[in-house]
């Protein structure tokens, strides 16, 4: 369908005006620059960097991947080169192909590690906000442990907020009874925004050996199969808090982006789809104006939370 009028796909997040709401999700896009071999990544609204810890980490033993009918389980375990290398090496490489501001994703095993890592990445000019990964299911004694208890989550958010200058987004785990409880806790702790959902804890077994396929038994399930779960979480959290939400979980097409924004997302992250189609974000960005035309949407920012007024 031809697009008859100019479609405005811009959105604003913490004062950063983005050309479109499409952001590759942390852990599915590396540090971004390698995707420039597939397409010009400068079209992306922003990029969420691979989860970063204070020191370099190898992550979990192999296998780290298990296939599922509508997605996959991963247990990478936050492999990354460490915060200073991300700031001084990876971000410089990305800056050569991507002139816009990015989102740094911070993981950790202690309050101290979260704070110190966040401070290092807070000092990078290329970064416009810090995403706190308190929901990674693949790190023992860290990651998700900080995201399941509302009290700890609130304290951690406050500890990081007290030490960094840039806006802090808390990435929430769906592996809770009621995600609005942790959402409110993060907001009380001073979160400037929330991103959701991280992966759902899952497992696959090898039919021959009867053992888990993943070396550390379980991992995070993601892919199109989780989209309805993610959408419901965004919808519920939108009613529970007032800070902006970045919606994610199984987003694989422009229509999914619209649904996420209807539910209350101000921006949308695309994750696993990047891994099965390296052109996923490019296709979504190109399709967005066409889907807006079909739906009679002129300005994308107008539809944020529309489901709650419909």
């Amino acid at each position: 369908m031809p697009v008859n009028s100019i479609k405005d796909t811009r959105i604003e997040l913490f004062g950063n005006v983005m050309d479109n709401p499409v952001i590759p999700a942390s852990g599915t896009f590396g540090f971004g620059y390698e995707f420039n071999d597939w397409y010009d990544v400068s079209i992306l609204g922003s990029i969420a960097l691979k989860g970063t810890t204070l020191e370099a980490r190898y992550g979990n033993p192999l296998p780290r991947i298990a296939e599922c009918p509508a997605g996959m389980i991963n247990a990478i375990g936050l492999q990354n080169p460490g915060a200073e290398a991300v700031r001084d090496v990876e971000l410089k490489k990305l800056g050569k192909v991507y002139p816009k501001k990015v989102i740094a994703n911070v993981g950790g095993h202690s309050f101290d590690e979260y704070v110190r890592t966040a401070k290092i990445l807070d000092s990078a000019d290329e970064v416009f906000c810090i995403e706190l990964n308190v929901s990674c299911p693949n790190v023992k004694g860290g990651g998700m442990a900080f995201g399941l208890d509302a009290g700890i989550l609130e304290e951690l958010t406050r500890a990081v907020k007290n030490e960094v200058k840039k806006p802090v987004v808390v990435k929430l785990s769906p592996n809770v009874t009621d995600i609005t409880v942790t959402a409110r806790a993060a907001e009380r702790g001073g979160a400037d925004g929330l991103s959701l959902i991280n992966t759902l804890v899952g497992m696959r077994l090898d039919l021959n050996s009867a053992r888990p396929i993943i070396s550390v038994k379980r991992g995070g399930y993601s892919g199109p199969g989780v989209f309805p779960v993610a959408l419901n979480a965004v919808y519920n959290v939108r009613e529970a808090v007032s800070v902006p939400i970045i919606g994610m979980g199984g987003v694989s097409c422009a229509e999914n982006v619209i649904e996420m924004m209807y539910a209350g997302a101000s921006a949308v992250m695309v994750g696993t789809q990047n891994l099965i189609d390296p052109f996923a974000c490019k296709k979504i960005i190109e399709e967005l104006p066409k889907v807006m035309e079909k739906l009679g949407i002129d300005r994308l920012s107008d539809i944020i939370g529309r489901a709650h007024n419909a």
Partner: peptide, 22 residues
């Protein structure tokens, strides 16, 4: 050989340890 996620370097699903790092 390794069980892979993406096959092109994005997911870190097949990383190994070498004398010059991961």
């Amino acid at each position: 050989e390794a069980r892979m996620g993406c096959g092109f370097g994005a997911c870190m699903g097949c990383s190994i340890t070498t004398v010059s790092g991961f």
